[in-house]
Design a protein around this nucleic acid. Structure first.
Lengths: 220, 220
DNA sequence: ATCATCATTTGATATGAATCAAGATGTTTT
DNA sequence: AAAACATCTTGATTCATATCAAATGATGAT
């Protein structure tokens, strides 16, 4: 939440995030077809969002961590069009969207904030399209790992070590490749001494080498 | 614009779309890095939006037609992160975003409308991710054609005939495949009598066959 | 009208990732 | 602790699409 509010403002704003909800690992926060009522701000834990076709194919559309907002997909039709599943025990703030809209009209800073969150999601999805449309398996995985540590680092975690919350299959679904291909790319990076992998633990030894794989141009 | 406004309201709302701008075929409405000031409502013409990497790879992120809004990518950083190029001579309404926000606070219906537009774009990109991550070349092209005619039909055009505004290469970029593969998929559909193609003119002879390719389950 | 340029189609071949399959490692249950 | 199950790794093979190449068809310029 941005700065620039009086304590009286804050009291009103706090109201919108008054309700909390705990979600156990593997449980759904909301699912495709559910009525949309609220946005959710992740307080703790880790989520994936995914869409699926009638014939059962699933596409992970994102991984979300503390501080990020999920549920924006529900606004347009008043129903969610994806599933949000907790990849570890989680807690979210339930933000009734009607309240968010009411307060947005009262507080321009909040209004701007909401717009930026939605725009950020659009821009993120644009870059995932670039990933899926133009890049090869190893480039995708490099980009994925760099993005994850960067976000974790912004939250005070290490910029070189991380524990993946998702399976190889979920990574593959997000990156448009099969789990075997994900595994092979991990092994290749490991063989080359770029990372150290032990199941879901990953240690990035040569971040620049990863960046070079992701984008050969920027690191000549 | 949704209904439910008095004529006095409408006068205020008209103000936001007072400015128009013409863009010639091939010209950019806005480009990556440009300062963000406005959203654009397409009045006439046809656009593509695309992102590109430093090493020159380009990904078309969408094709937009009359009645659709472009520029949402610029909100989050105050700078655009993609290029919007006119694929035919076009005219847009320039909607200064500051004005949109001001009026959104005054008119809840407008506020809701803006939120829905952004949410719709997020949901659209989710389904493009599904396309790119999970589907094969012919499924992608079938989905693309069905989506295009459906949008054109909603605007009063034929639901079976269309003239593509984009090249095979641009279609390929959007769908994550090479122009030769796009061409072969067109030829295959044509050989099977599903469509008739002559350069950029496409006549859909068997829409159900296309739907079946796109999603084998729904049309048993 | 002719030439030059660009877009599209089609064929032959190469290649990256999928698929199939088995084994290894790790986790949970009994 | 052993058994059952899920996840991950690795190898062999197949397949869809990319790449390379050439011909055809459209479009614009002189």
């Amino acid at each position: 939440m941005p700065a620039g509010f009086t304590s009286e403002d804050m009291k009103k704003l706090d109201e919108v995030v008054a309700t909390r909800r705990r979600i156990k690992q593997g449980d759904m926060l909301f699912g495709n077809g559910d009525a949309f009522t609220s946005l959710y701000a992740i307080r703790t834990g880790f989520f994936k969002t995914c869409v699926s076709t009638e014939d059962g194919r699933e596409q992970v559309t994102g991984f979300q961590m503390a501080g990020e907002i999920i549920g924006l997909d529900g606004i347009v039709t008043d129903h969610h069009s994806c599933n949000a599943v907790a990849l570890e025990d989680a807690e979210v703030c339930v933000m009734p969207f009607a309240k968010v809209e009411d307060l947005s009209r009262e507080f321009p800073l909040l209004q701007r904030h909401v717009h930026k969150i939605m725009s950020r999601e659009i821009v993120r999805e644009n870059s995932v399209m670039m990933l899926l449309g133009n890049m090869r398996a190893e480039e995708r995985l490099a980009a994925f790992l760099l993005n994850l540590v960067q976000r974790l680092h912004a939250r005070g975690f290490s910029q070189s070590e991380l524990t993946l919350r998702m399976s190889r299959e979920e990574i593959g679904s997000y990156l448009g490749m099969k789990l075997e291909t994900v595994s092979r790319a991990f092994s290749k990076f490991s063989d080359e001494g770029i990372i150290e992998v032990k199941q879901r633990y990953v240690h990035i030894l040569k971040p620049d080498a990863l960046k070079k794989i992701f984008n050969p141009q920027t690191c000549i």
